[in-house]
Design a protein around this nucleic acid. Structure first.
Lengths: 144, 144
DNA sequence: CTTTCTGCAAACGATTTGCAGCAGC
DNA sequence: GCTGCTGCAAATCGTTTGCAGAAAG
């Protein structure tokens, strides 16, 4: 984990009056070294000897601190990844067969279209968009 | 409920070897008369005297038949709506504060961008997209 | 030193399931 | 009439919570 990431984490936790603990560091490290969002069983299986309840509690805290983002799919477990401002904006490929979730970078053209659609919706409905989510659902290479 | 919708429902249920029952008709009617995806408590509260377990079971069947689509949010309950080929393609506005979900029609420009991004991803990753989901998360008029 | 976090185990609550009787076709 | 659906109540399982001791600041 690079130093400035460490500082960012510490700062954001302080921002919501939370401490930087060994467990929280460990969770962030596990997430930051994964190429895709992880479920809680996957985090528990990462060999860091974390208690299940602590992982659940800490993910709530990290989410409130804006460090971690929760992705809910039709799968049995929620998935977690580092917040986009730490990793870069991306979208998700979701396999309808095996539940796999993979990150893909957002293309500039698509982003532009989404933003103009967002602006249009704000005008017509008063909805104030904070962020968006684009998921492509289909079959991954293994299941296709 | 119009006649051809009724026939479509009957046909798709037959397609997965399922019967068209009074409960299933009732659920479809409730969903088709709502302007937004409904939770199971909302469906149960619709005054049609449905048993909770039957609603859960039938929504699974209707989803497999391709008649109903399940939306999972961070909210405590899943939400259900009629399949898009019965209602028209649309996206969702999700209120980060109160959990409300509202339908918005998909703009042509945005769709075009999503499709070209999809094609690009198929070429580079082998992922075969079946459909996509665009959610705008922010504050609804009431919570903003 | 004080406050917050941790781990354990028990509680919670949305969803699923077993079973006996009823309904679609 | 046979097969599959329904409703009830009990079971399941991901997630949350109470509590006493350990760690952050």
């Amino acid at each position: 984990m690079v130093a400035d990431l460490h500082d960012t984490i510490h700062g954001r936790l302080r921002g919501v009056n939370q401490r930087l603990t060994a467990n929280r560091k460990a969770i962030i490290e596990v997430l930051s070294s994964a190429p895709r969002p992880l479920t809680i069983p996957e985090i528990l299986a990462s060999g860091r000897d974390l208690a299940q309840s602590s992982v659940y509690r800490n993910l709530v805290v990290l989410e409130q601190a804006g460090l971690v983002h929760r992705i809910v799919t039709n799968d049995e477990h929620s998935r977690f990844e580092l917040a986009e401002d730490l990793t870069g904006h991306h979208h998700h490929l979701i396999c309808a067969n095996c539940g796999m979730v993979e990150d893909v970078p957002a293309s500039a053209g698509l982003e532009k279209s989404v933003h103009s659609a967002t602006a249009q919706i704000a005008r017509s409905t008063g909805f104030r968009t904070q962020h968006h989510r684009v998921d492509l659902v289909g079959l991954c290479r293994d299941c296709g």
